[in-house]
């Protein structure tokens, strides 16, 4: 299987391990990730205002390139996923917006075909659940994470707004827990797993985000977790700094269970 693979800026810099292990695991699962040419930053956060167009163009370009390649667009970072999926939703459902974007992009020159949200956007976890299958993930496990108690942290970006993201039951999701089970570990369910870590507010009011993050990690630890698992670099940053729980990317855990972690490490540039 070939998929269009959107790594995003942070996975090239501060979150290399999220990307590195994702690719290693895909290799083992016979999925070939193909990066769109000249992809640009997704914008980091989706701006919900209807009149905001420029900041959404890079997402549309990535979506359009996946459409032309005839592949689903797979994202790993929760933030990229949220921005691209929401932008795609606007292209499908907001005719006025889609029209303006297409007119703008037509100015790029060359032969132009309009884009209207045709690309299927998948988060890496959705790729595993819906296309690869967790049973296949389980079959690829050579070093099951037996005995580990892992708390899945969804945060907000993967789940909300549910009308658009349609990722899982936003109040009682199971995709990450099923993933953890496939790796041989025990999922720890706790109420704060779908509450916000504080996000970008850390840049403006670090006290506020510290409070949010601590509430999440404390709830996870009190529920008996030894590790918190996430798909988002910003969540990992916020949670790691507050509460003392080890926070690990889901791809890293998967690589560990696949027996790929010891052999290869992220190379420092």
């Amino acid at each position: 299987m070939k998929v269009s693979y959107f790594p995003g800026c942070t996975l090239r810099t501060k979150a290399k391990e999220l990307d590195f292990y994702a690719r290693k695991c895909l290799e083992k699962l016979d999925v070939e990730p193909i990066e769109p040419d000249n992809w640009q930053c997704c914008g980091g956060v989706f701006v919900s205002a209807k009149d905001e167009i420029a900041s959404k163009l890079s997402s549309v370009r990535a979506l359009k390139s996946a459409k032309e390649a005839g592949m689903p667009l797979v994202t790993v970072c929760s933030a990229c996923h949220n921005v691209i999926k929401q932008t795609n939703y606007c292209m499908q459902n907001d005719a006025d917006f889609a029209n303006k974007v297409n007119l703008y992009m037509a100015q790029d020159g060359g032969e132009f075909t309009p884009y209207n949200g045709e690309t299927e956007v998948l988060h890496f976890l959705e790729l595993l659940r819906d296309k690869v299958g967790f049973d296949k993930v389980k079959a690829a496990v050579v070093k099951p994470l037996t005995g580990r108690k892992i708390a899945a942290y969804y945060g907000c970006l993967l789940l909300r707004p549910n009308k658009v993201m349609a990722f899982d039951n936003p109040e009682n999701p199971t995709i990450m827990e099923d993933f953890i089970r496939a790796l041989g570990a025990e999922p720890v369910v706790y109420a704060m797993r779908n509450e916000c870590c504080g996000g970008y507010v850390v840049t403006d009011d670090p006290e506020s985000s510290a409070k949010k993050s601590a509430a999440v990690t404390e709830n996870a630890m009190n529920a008996g977790a030894d590790t918190v698992m996430t798909a988002c670099p910003l969540c990992k940053y916020n949670l790691s700094k507050n509460g003392g729980a080890p926070v690990v990317y889901f791809t890293e855990l998967m690589a560990e269970a696949f027996g790929l972690k010891e052999e290869q490490h992220v190379t420092e540039e």
């Binding site: 942070t10 501060k14 979150a15 930053c41 980091g44 933030a79 996000g199 970008y200 840049t203």
Partner: peptide, 19 residues
């Protein structure tokens, strides 16, 4: 002034978008 060793780019980009 905000930067530390770990702060992801995503945070800065998002903050600029929001603020």
């Amino acid at each position: 002034a905000l930067l530390d060793d770990d702060l992801p780019q995503q945070a800065i980009v998002s903050a600029m978008r929001k603020y």
